[in-house]
Amino acid sequence: MTGSDLAARQAALVAALVAAGPLPPGFTAGPVDAARRALLRKRGGEVARHWPLLAAGLGPDWPAVFADWAAGRPGSGGLRDGWDLARALRDRGVLPPVAAEELALREATVHYDGRRHPRPRRLPAVRRAGGAVAVQLAGRVRLLRPARR
């Protein structure tokens, strides 16, 4: 086996594990599926460290909600994955109130367009998420209206 063959097989295995790619030849579905689920749990834990109120707001549903959302999506890191998930839940109208506050505060202080790495905002900003309104002025952030609980 050449180096390029090995690299292609490794890429196919990674795609099957993290991006819902087809099962590569020579691998059994059971162990690959178990490894995929374990990687999703680990990734969900990393997201929960960056977005604790999102995870807490979803409570016991957190692992399933995250796994459903993340299945088939390559990871972007805990901060960005959590941000993308929070926005997706907000857009569907199912973002828990405490997570709406977390999202509004984060979006008032940091700019994230969904493609590039987040970066601090320099100008004043007002952001709203699920009933929560956050204002950032001169580097200070205030939650003007908490989300309804």
Results as ranks from 00 to 15, higher is better:
G72E: 06
G72I: 09
G72Y: 11
G72R: 11
S76L: 15
G77F: 04
G77D: 06
G78L: 12
R80T: 11
R80H: 00
D81H: 11
G82Q: 13
L85R: 06
A86N: 09
A86T: 10
R87A: 07
A88Y: 09
A88E: 11
L89S: 10
R90G: 06
R90K: 04
R90D: 10
D91P: 02
R92D: 14
R92L: 14
V94H: 10
L95P: 00
P96T: 08
P96I: 01
P96M: 00
V98W: 01
V98C: 09
V98Y: 00
V98D: 05
A99R: 01
A100H: 00
A100M: 07
A100E: 01
E101A: 14
E102S: 08
E102R: 09
L103R: 06
A104Q: 11
L105C: 13
L105V: 15
R106N: 02
R106V: 06
A108D: 02
V110Q: 01
H111K: 05
Y112R: 07
Y112D: 07
D113N: 15
G114W: 10
H117N: 06
P118M: 02
P118A: 05
P118N: 02
R119M: 03
R119K: 06
P120D: 04
R121P: 05
R122F: 03
L123M: 08
L123G: 06
P124H: 14
P124N: 09
A125Q: 14
V126D: 11
V126K: 12
V126S: 13
V126T: 15
R127T: 12
R127G: 01
R127D: 12
R128V: 15
A129D: 03
A129I: 03
G130H: 04
G130M: 00
A132E: 08
A132F: 12
V133Y: 00
A134N: 08
A134D: 13
Q136V: 01
L137P: 02
L137M: 14
A138L: 13
A138W: 03
A138I: 03
G139H: 10
G139S: 13
